[in-house]
Nucleic acid binder design. Structure first.
Length: 449
RNA sequence: UCCUGAGUAGCUCAGUUGGUUAGAGCAUCUGACUGUUAAUCAGAGGGUCGUAGGUUCAAGUCCUACCUCAGGAGCCA
């Protein structure tokens, strides 16, 4: 591979001549001196072009370079406080490799819709750049976390013959002569097969939901990581979820400080957010959470405070709505795990607590001021019970024959959870909308670019 | 699927009670400037006011329908 100089390595090359290759991010010119900001993917470097150093001809041609033109700049690395980032290049030579033309994203305000229409170019800008680097760190941390603990990566199919939970609306496509196939909405059931084969596995892949969701927390295509562990109960599941969050968010704090600083404009707010979730999680039974919410809404309603038109008062037995999750987590400084949800509002495969038959051994991890990031449960491991659950939910038994085999042959207690990658990226980066947490979002009204 | 709001220059927006030739900043082009930090300063070009219809002497502004998008709810991760 050819010798390359990158912006991120400049601190070790002060006084040396380097050639940076990248794109013109922005420039300022002042008659006989030009400041060109070169972006190479690893960072941004200010390049100083002085007329009587490079000569009138090269100076004039530099003056014509438009935003996002591809350039190779040669010069001496200088340390200076006047340059953003602390280093700049005293330019001796500039090669224009590809002209830029009228670049649609100018260094001024743009609306989100306009930026999304140019997402393929917007990714070059600072905020998406920082966000995607945080996302990358989270992905690597997720894989490392599981590998360090003896999990193996166990890919589930994306084309599946049936709905996993039988509830969500799925994308469908023709599958040769086999009828319809559906894009996977969860790898969990396959993960359970993996857990019985390998003990500890994690499924990490794209997930598809054809719901007509229209909120800032929903994508129709997103990435989900789903660990599944044999011989683990709900208690172990909650411990794993906490350890997992601490590990991956800890990696962001260790490796992506400068990206967080770009995202919060140097306020340090994002670091504080991350440190919040490194605390021990608050755990509470659904009944306790329900009591707290009852009191919370009673007081709110009594105070006469105006509530949003879509507000619906929580009642015991309900799953939590968006307002409930935000309300509950606002009372604590750390994530909250709610467990033992009413079985009626949860999926068929979740095991019920023998001591509280109307409650599922399920848990959700709720992040402060945000809501659900993780949902998990101990799975039903008894063959007869599982069969009757499938019947109760009106699901086609034949489709679950292979799944039932897992209970026919050496069934054991097991548990797991699912975490939406983009929800985590969104929370860590404090994004306004989840669509900024993935390179090319797929939402109800967007499948382009 | 339900509720709310918005569409005016390439982009972000202003546009009063309906009233002359629809404005600003940025971007683009021309010029000035040797330390700029979204550089600044002077000038120029740039518009079927989402679409269709209606009211009126007169519509960006009022009315009706439609289209598109955004925000919120539900569904969930």
């Amino acid at each position: 591979m050819m010798q390359r100089d990158y912006v991120q390595d400049l601190s070790a090359k002060v006084g040396q001549e380097v050639t940076l290759r990248g794109w013109l991010y922005n420039k300022r010119s002042s008659g006989k001196i030009q400041f060109e900001l070169l972006r190479d993917g690893t960072g941004i470097c200010q390049c100083v072009v002085v007329k009587n150093v490079v000569g009138a001809e090269m100076f004039a041609s530099c003056d014509t370079i438009s935003q996002e033109s591809a350039i190779a700049v040669t010069g001496i690395v200088q340390a200076t406080e006047k340059a953003p980032g602390g280093f700049e290049l005293s330019v001796t030579k500039v090669d224009i490799m590809g002209a830029g033309g009228d670049y649609p994203i100018t260094p001024k305000e743009h609306g989100v819709e306009y930026l999304m229409e140019h997402r393929h170019l917007w990714l070059r800008s600072q905020r998406p750049w920082a966000t995607m680097r945080v996302r990358d760190t989270l992905i690597v941390a997720i894989r490392n976390f599981f590998h360090e603990r003896g999990f193996i990566c166990f890919d589930s199919p994306i084309l599946t013959p049936n709905a996993a939970e039988g509830t969500s609306t799925l994308f469908e496509t023709k599958y040769f002569d086999e009828g319809m196939a559906y894009l996977s909405q969860s790898g969990q059931l396959y993960g359970e097969a993996g857990a019985m084969a390998f003990g500890k596995v994690y499924v990490f892949g794209p997930t598809f939901r054809a719901e007509r969701s229209k909120t800032k927390r929903h994508l129709n295509e997103f990435w989900m990581v789903e660990p599944e562990v044999a011989f683990m109960d709900l208690e172990g599941d909650m411990e794993l979820a906490q350890e997992f969050v601490h590990y991956v968010v800890g990696k962001v704090l260790a490796e992506r400080r400068s990206e967080l600083s770009i995202l919060d404009e140097g306020s340090g707010r994002l670091v504080q957010r991350c440190e919040q979730v490194l605390k021990p999680f608050v755990r509470m039974h659904y009944d306790e959470a329900a009591k707290i919410l009852d009191k919370y809404w009673d007081e709110k309603l009594a105070s006469g405070e105006e509530l949003p038109p879509t507000f619906k008062r929580f009642e015991y037995g309900d799953d939590f709505g968006a307002y409930d999750e935000v309300a509950l987590t606002s009372l604590y400084d750390a994530p909250v795990i709610v467990h033992h949800y009413p079985a009626a509002v949860k999926a068929f495969y979740m095991k019920r607590d023998p001591n509280e038959p109307d409650k599922a051994l399920a848990m959700d991890v709720l992040f402060p001021g945000f809501g659900e990031i993780i949902g998990g449960s101990q799975r039903e491991d008894n063959y007869d019970v599982l069969v009757s659950r499938i019947e109760e939910h009106g699901l086609p038994m034949a489709a679950f024959e292979w799944y039932l085999d897992l209970r026919r042959y050496g069934s054991v207690p097991h548990a797991g959870f699912g975490l939406g990658l983009e929800r985590l990226v969104m929370w860590v980066c404090d994004l306004e909308h989840i669509r900024e947490a993935i390179p090319f979002p797929r939402t109800l009204t967007r499948i382009w670019p």
